[in-house]
């Protein structure tokens, strides 16, 4: 019966374009407070004059992608691509 539970999101890797402000510290803190998110890992990959491209790795259990997208939008950040997804059955 172990594989009959509902699938939940446990990890996503995102490629995101954002303005320099709010900083990745501020963004990280808010992402960390989303329900189900346990760890947030943000790495700056490219810095431009007005913007920066970051890689966001979120891990946890059962967080909602929509909530993540809403936080990004609220912070003026745009998800360019979803590069990795891990879903588990609980």
């Amino acid at each position: 019966m172990g594989d009959s539970g509902s699938p939940i999101l446990t990890k996503v890797v995102l490629d995101v374009l954002k303005p320099h402000k709010p900083s990745i510290l501020e963004l990280g803190e808010v992402l960390g407070s989303v329900d189900g998110v346990k760890t947030v890992n943000i790495v700056i990959r490219e810095v431009d004059v007005e913007t920066e491209t970051i890689k966001v790795v979120l891990e946890g259990s059962g967080f909602k992608y929509k909530e993540i997208r809403d936080v990004m939008e609220k912070f003026g950040a745009k998800i360019h691509s979803v590069d990795e997804v891990v879903v588990e059955k609980r």
């Binding site: 303005p19 004059v49 007005e50 609220k74 912070f75 003026g76």
Partner: peptide, 17 residues
């Protein structure tokens, strides 16, 4: 407006707006 041009997005509803 400059930032919106660089981001190709409307930032009016974001914390930046």
């Amino acid at each position: 407006k400059d930032l919106e041009k660089a981001m190709l997005a409307d930032l009016g509803n974001s914390v930046i707006g």
